[in-house]
Amino acid sequence: MKFSRTIIALENRLKSCRNVRTLGVKPQFSDYSPEERLAILEAPTVYYPSSWYAELFDTMGKPTFPSHHTYRFAQDKIKQNAIFDLVGIPHPATRIFYGPRQHKSILDHFDFPFIAKTPRGSARGVGVYLIHDERELGAYLARCRIAYIQEYLPIDRDIRVVVVANRLLHAYWRIAPPGEFRSNVSAGGSISPESVPWQAMDLALHTASRCHLDDVGIDICRKGEGFAVLEINVKYGKEGFLKAGLNYSEMMENLIEHGII
């Protein structure tokens, strides 16, 4: 494949792409060499700039991929829940309780068991708890001043759908191991080749479009007769691509070369 342009990226997401020059994320812009600074400033788009530089580039009017808007929702479940409520994305019943005074009302809204999550900064199944009783709830509240509480859905699998630039890149089932309520691959979950229902893929595309997310892994589960969005992941893993024999780097190279991203 012959590439017509080389693009600039900061984070390592595209490091294996042959038409991408990855410079790394440095704490200060002055840490880049003069040649690197010029390359960044002259690049029409800076790819995977990190949440720190995405905000700065947005302020100065420089386009990035993913967008600054997409980075806003990275590892922030409170913002994710808020936007789902605002734009009508189906999701499990969720409520946020701020501080000890509001913690006292959790059991007025939820019955055991329910899910409790670390609201910010967690990923890959870390910081997700199945709460069975008041003792477990107390232990969770001792760790999290802001309580993110979500209804428990008795499922053993969910669907990961990767959407890039409003295109469905890949979709697959994730199955929880025996005795585990989380289906994350990092928590021991397995990837199933079973076909993904079109309704789930449509919901993912609708969610990405409605929430203006241009590169995202969307976790979806069955809820009743339909589907619901569990959460979104800006820094999603590539295990599902490998399992399906898909070359993620080549897919991204093609999207770049054809001007799609």
Rank of each mutant, 00 (worst) to 15 (best):
105 S>C: 01
200 A>T: 09
7 I>P: 02
52 W>C: 04
74 A>S: 13
234 V>P: 03
194 E>I: 00
238 K>V: 08
113 P>V: 11
119 P>V: 01
137 L>E: 02
199 Q>W: 02
148 Y>D: 02
114 F>T: 05
157 R>S: 14
141 L>E: 13
212 H>F: 08
202 D>A: 12
47 Y>R: 00
143 R>A: 10
167 R>W: 07
11 E>A: 07
113 P>A: 09
162 V>N: 06
25 V>W: 12
75 Q>M: 05
174 R>H: 01
96 I>H: 07
256 I>S: 10
17 C>H: 11
75 Q>R: 11
55 E>N: 04
253 E>Q: 11
217 G>D: 03
49 P>K: 11
36 E>Y: 09
40 I>C: 07
74 A>Q: 13
159 I>Y: 03
200 A>G: 07
86 L>W: 14
182 R>V: 11
229 V>Q: 13
259 G>C: 09
163 V>Q: 06
114 F>M: 05
255 L>D: 01
182 R>H: 04
212 H>Q: 08
152 Y>N: 05
94 T>W: 12
111 D>G: 01
128 V>I: 15
194 E>L: 03
35 E>D: 01
199 Q>C: 00
93 A>Q: 07
177 P>Q: 14
240 G>N: 13
66 P>R: 11
237 G>C: 08
129 Y>Q: 03
92 P>Q: 06
234 V>I: 14
133 D>N: 14
111 D>C: 05
65 F>T: 00
260 I>N: 10
67 S>Y: 11
96 I>M: 09
6 T>G: 14
213 L>K: 09
95 R>D: 08
51 S>K: 14
1 M>P: 13
247 N>C: 14
74 A>C: 13
119 P>E: 00
210 R>C: 02
87 V>D: 03
59 T>W: 12
136 E>Q: 15
1 M>Q: 08
174 R>P: 03
8 I>E: 00
201 M>D: 05
80 Q>I: 13
56 L>M: 11
83 I>D: 00
8 I>F: 00
260 I>K: 13
96 I>Y: 08
146 I>F: 00
89 I>R: 13
226 G>C: 04
18 R>P: 02
43 A>M: 01
157 R>G: 07
88 G>A: 07
77 K>Q: 07
57 F>A: 10
117 K>C: 06
93 A>H: 12
206 H>I: 04
221 C>F: 01
24 G>I: 00
117 K>P: 05
131 I>A: 02
141 L>F: 13
94 T>G: 11
112 F>Q: 06
196 V>H: 10
15 K>A: 15
75 Q>Y: 01
41 L>A: 08
163 V>A: 11
168 L>H: 06
192 S>I: 07
129 Y>M: 02
164 V>D: 10
